[in-house]
Simulated assay, not measured.
Amino acid sequence: MATVTESVDVHVPLHTAYNQWTQFEEFPRFMEGVEEVHQMDPTHVHWKTRIGGVEREFDTEIFEQQPDERVAWRSTSGPDQVGVVSFQPITDADTRVTMQMEWTPEGFAEKAGSLMQLDDRRVHGDLERFKEFIEARGTETGAWRGEV
């Protein structure tokens, strides 16, 4: 199983960073390779990705969601993965966003990419683009404050 942990500090309050992260359908705006995301209900999300020329569709289940703290998910179809994104206040106006993921690379290309830490760079890039996205807006596009 491959693992990655990456963090980024964003210049927005904790609730703004968290609220934006709960807007899963906005992920294609800052996640490379994510073409579509559809939230089917509060705990189930359908993904369509194209990474390295490989198209995939899969579902994930949010099994833990604590407002302003963390969102954790696991795959229910497609690639085997589990992850959590956590939010930590640095100041009243700054937040650290940390993503931890584990997955099983499939096929030669994914296994080679994992060995070369390309997945670490992708997650780092996605967090940097999230930072640019939310800092440029200054406010979230929506929010879901429910607990799971």
Rank of each mutant, 00 (worst) to 15 (best):
T49Q: 07
A72K: 08
G107R: 01
Q66C: 04
A143F: 04
V45W: 00
G138T: 03
E25R: 11
H46S: 14
E132H: 13
F63M: 08
D92G: 14
T3G: 05
Q66I: 14
D9G: 05
M101L: 15
F24G: 09
R122E: 03
V82D: 09
F133Q: 02
I134D: 02
H15G: 04
Q117M: 15
A143D: 11
E110H: 10
V12A: 10
T60K: 05
L127W: 00
T91M: 03
P67S: 02
T139K: 11
E102D: 07
S114G: 14
W144C: 04
E69S: 14
E135A: 09
V85N: 10
E110S: 11
M99N: 06
T98N: 12
P13I: 06
P89Y: 12
A136Y: 00
E6Q: 07
G52M: 07
G52I: 03
H15Y: 08
A17S: 05
G107Q: 01
F30R: 12
R129G: 00
I62T: 05
E135W: 04
S77G: 07
F27T: 09
G107T: 05
E61K: 14
P89L: 13
G78R: 04
V4E: 11
T60I: 15
G138A: 06
W144H: 10
T49L: 01
A109M: 08
D80G: 02
A112K: 09
P67F: 01
D59C: 11
H124A: 10
D119W: 11
E57I: 00
A143C: 09
G52L: 08
G146D: 13
R29D: 13
I62D: 01
Y18A: 11
G138C: 03
K131V: 05
W73M: 12
L14W: 00
E61Q: 14
G107H: 01
S86V: 06
T91Q: 05
E128P: 01
K48E: 08
E135F: 02
T139R: 08
V71I: 15
G125N: 14
T22A: 09
V37R: 05
H38V: 15
V54W: 03
T141P: 14
T43L: 08
F108T: 12
N19G: 09
R74W: 02
S114T: 14
G53Q: 07
W21C: 07
T22L: 06
V34E: 00
E6F: 01
R29M: 07
F63G: 06
P105Q: 00
P42A: 00
R56E: 10
Y18K: 09
M99Y: 02
D59T: 14
P105V: 01
V123K: 00
R121L: 12
V8A: 06
L118S: 08
G78K: 02
H46T: 12
L127H: 01
W144N: 09
P28M: 03
V71Q: 04
T104L: 07
A93V: 13
D92E: 15
G33L: 03
V4R: 08
F27D: 06
E64H: 13
V34W: 00
H46Q: 15
Q65A: 12
V37H: 04
S114H: 12
E69N: 14
M99K: 09
